[in-house]
Computed example of a mutant assay.
Amino acid sequence: MTNSFQGFPKDFLRFYAELIANNNRDWFAQNKQRYKDVVVYPMCDFIEAMAPRLEAIAPMFIADPRPNGGSMFRIYRDVRFSRDPKPYKEHAACQFRHQAGRDAHAPGYYVHLALDGVRFGGGIYLPPAPVLNKIRHAIDGKSADWNAIKDDPGFKATFIDGIRGDGLKRAPKGFPIDHPEIEDLRRKTLFVMKPLANIEKITTPEFVDEVDEAFQKATPFMRFLTNAVELPF
């Protein structure tokens, strides 16, 4: 690893193109060192480069550049309960989660790198019911603040799809179906993502700036979620 992020190597994209065509253990065993060289170590450099920027944006969130146990997700898929037998994820990703969270279900900023799209932003993924209930009550009780975040021009321009996340078909318990925020109250996951227009941008040092800017725009949303689950921002 180096001390500065110069962009992901071009072989990063070739590696994932070949993995998609050869998602099996024999191929990966033959390319494991390549995976470390073109995916793991550059991702560690990227996370390290993001650390001071994240500190300035949201000091309670952690950018951990360790290759194992840090902010980077493992490439290995859990196939125990999946109909898809492919052993490896066909994308790279990292999450900068709140220091109080030990898993992906805590609030976090997120970066996803795949051949079919690069995106970054933040949110909270399938939080436990008591945590999700706190978020719903915060949206209900502070709807003016919630809508101010959603209606901010910079936020809307950055996250063109708005706040997303799978939701219930009905209103959650305790909320009327005609609630003005029912669309967001139904959500079981809440996130915002900015798509990268040109995937080749990840091979340049400026990719850090792109992610930094999106994280800044996501921060009011992230602050709302974090405060809603009674954690310091």
Score class of each variant (00 low, 15 high):
Y88S: 06
D152N: 11
L196T: 07
G174W: 05
A21R: 14
I135Y: 07
G165K: 06
K10I: 15
F120P: 02
K142V: 00
P52W: 02
A218V: 06
A63T: 04
P176C: 04
R25W: 15
N3C: 08
Y110K: 08
D45V: 02
G108Q: 13
N68T: 14
A63C: 14
F61P: 01
A171F: 10
H105P: 01
D209V: 08
Y110Q: 06
W27P: 11
A21G: 12
V40Y: 08
G123V: 00
A93F: 00
Y110S: 09
I182C: 02
D161I: 05
F224M: 14
I199F: 00
P220G: 13
I20G: 12
T219N: 09
R14I: 15
G122K: 03
R77T: 05
D116Q: 07
C44M: 09
K188H: 05
K194C: 03
S71K: 01
A49M: 02
I124N: 01
P153N: 02
K217A: 06
I177E: 11
K169S: 11
I47E: 04
F233I: 10
G122F: 02
R136N: 12
C44S: 13
V38Q: 05
R223E: 03
A197T: 10
K134N: 08
R164I: 11
G141I: 00
Y110N: 06
Q6S: 10
Q6G: 14
R186D: 10
K150L: 13
T219L: 02
P59H: 00
K201H: 12
I199L: 10
K169A: 07
P195G: 01
Q216G: 00
K169C: 08
H105F: 04
K36A: 14
Q216L: 04
L126Q: 05
